[in-house]
Design a protein around this nucleic acid. Structure first.
Lengths: 200, 200, 200, 200
DNA sequence: TATGAATGAGGCTTCATTCAT
DNA sequence: AATGAATGAAGCCTCATTCAT
């Protein structure tokens, strides 16, 4: 049905770098990010990951308990990297427009930089870090409402809507759409919509 | 008793014949729908599907040649169930408000009826019905723009945004929120937002 | 504990690591030879082979890609063992009598040494070594005819007849008949018969 | 490796003949003979056999307990059919030549008529009927020696040699060699060889 | 630690055989 | 009897994971 991405070519090559523990972990994470992005998590095998590495298969398990765990670590790493950016962007916003533009812009920018070309397999939303990010969004929205930046409505629904739009549109970014354009679209949508929402 | 090289005959166990022929196909489809929705199509295995069934593994292959084929059948089935409702709702819309209200309303209604107390796990986005519905949504939006019902913007982005909002808010419906309320929220958001979007 | 959709991790059992890498290939080959000889190549399964081994099923595939491949390896191995002996015996023959005596003698000797108390089941004729040996026999007979050692007749039929006699009489060897006696019988038969055959 | 014979085309066609029990058994045997001959016993499936029949799969088991059983029945049927012919031919022989010619001729003729084009998969020699045939051959040879038709040698070895040659040369008949020619070859071989054998 | 061969659960699928009709 | 859908053991193979070195 879909032309599944071919498995990566054997071992990249290379003079078995002598890496410190910390470096090996990072090496694996980098390889895993690439491989999962290219083949999708379900399709990619641990062997695919280590083949993209100068390491041996057993070594993988010195750093991660399972394939599932790298995946989680990857997500956490991402969440850890984006979330502070997003919070800052939102907290520094002086207008509603800035609020939305900053939110979407930072998120799309990050994905564009890190996940370009990744498989369209969607994130699963149940990682603790992702969930925490959700909670933060809702807090920030509530705070923005309190500040008068946003009209008072159902913060939970609004944050859900925001997240939903972000998660769907990010696919367009992954497949090459310009960050500014997609950000502009999402921002306009919410900017226009926010005043039409039922007041609380 | 004698060391004959032939392999022993099979078949020790007891039977389980309970469902009629016609029912079995449906049984498998129902199970497949559930399993794919929960684990995602890529992750789910044929085994997972039959395990969610009172049937034997071989029986699966009396009805479907492969996982791919159930998937297709599912698309076909769903197409016959929800999607026509959604399409009609959207196509019958005379105003933008009707368009959004119909879209969200029909979707939330369907989920409320069918997925009542379903697991809080979000849909995996690669489920067949979801994907198929996506395509149609985009078509209908494009048609609505052509009809002048909606202002001309990027139909793909708008449908993605619509879907994203629907998928996030549907969680609220699953956990008991009133369909009308959630529909109202989403409708208002898009109704307000649509005119603010960059023109095409 | 929690109904996570991911499939449970594998691996409950205890280990069995006993043989060194180099030995395992040989272990599998030995088992395969036995199994193919007893059940025939078509009937035997990879499972049958590994069951005749202390190894795990996956290990088979560390050494051979498929049943076909062991078969080939077997041919190669046997080629390195018996068949050269047979070929040399036949090629070194200076008279027709030597030719037959060498052929039968080497074969019966080999069986006596290797298949001593083996099961009374006849060889299945599709075993790799048998088939490979067949081809060589025919070549050597043709060569012997060319050398004038044997009168010119149908080499294919003669080699078939030779093989047939060898295969039936070898049973007598297996059950304890003296190699010399059986060899003498077969040699005499062909020595006497060869000149009566229709000329080519 | 080898171009395996394709499975037979579905149901031949036809207006579900109303057959008597005896006829059905024969129908299955005929189909089985064809299918096994074409695909080999190991490769052929019961479904292949019934597909070559107007019957349903369950019906197969009204007549045979297993796939193995049809196979045996087939062999028995063959043995039952050939053996009397062979005995008569041998017993009516007035000279050694007639003895051998009759033996080989009757056997090759039968195979040519019944198994032409069959897969080169060899018979397994352990069916009771086949074994019984062996015993008869040995008896007849002993009798012929007693009658002075054949010189006195080891009857067991001679009958084994005869059988071996017959079984190997029959392959040539199966692949189209002329019965007379092959018979002539085998007869000449034994006629010439018999006098060279060690006396008993 | 790092290595990589060994392991076996489990994926997909076929097919001999049973059994409700 | 005859039918043919249902059954599940077993075939082939992959791959996450362990473990001796």
């Amino acid at each position: 049905m879909d032309a599944k991405p071919a498995r990566p070519p054997a071992r990249p090559q290379g003079g078995r770098r002598e890496l410190t523990k910390a470096q090996n972990r990072e090496t694996i994470l980098v390889a895993a990010r690439q491989v999962f992005a290219q083949m999708g998590f379900a399709t990619a095998t641990v062997r695919d990951v280590i083949r993209a590495t100068p390491l041996a298969s057993g070594t993988f398990y010195n750093y991660f308990k399972s394939k599932e765990e790298v995946y989680q670590a990857l997500r956490d790493e991402v969440a850890l990297a984006v979330r502070p950016r997003l919070r800052q962007a939102r907290r520094g916003a002086a207008t509603a427009e800035e609020f939305f533009a900053a939110s979407f812009g930072a998120f799309f920018q990050f994905v564009a930089e890190n996940c370009a070309g990744a498989s369209p397999e969607r994130f699963r939303m149940d990682s603790p870090e992702v969930l925490a990010g959700f909670a933060e969004l809702q807090e920030d929205i509530a705070a923005a409402m309190a500040r008068g930046l946003l009209p008072a409505t159902d913060a939970a629904s609004l944050s859900a809507a925001l997240a939903g739009v972000a998660f769907e549109l990010v696919e367009r970014v992954k497949t090459g759409a310009a960050v500014e354009e997609v950000t502009g679209f999402a921002t306009a949508l919410f900017l226009g919509g926010i005043n039409a929402l039922p007041k609380r």
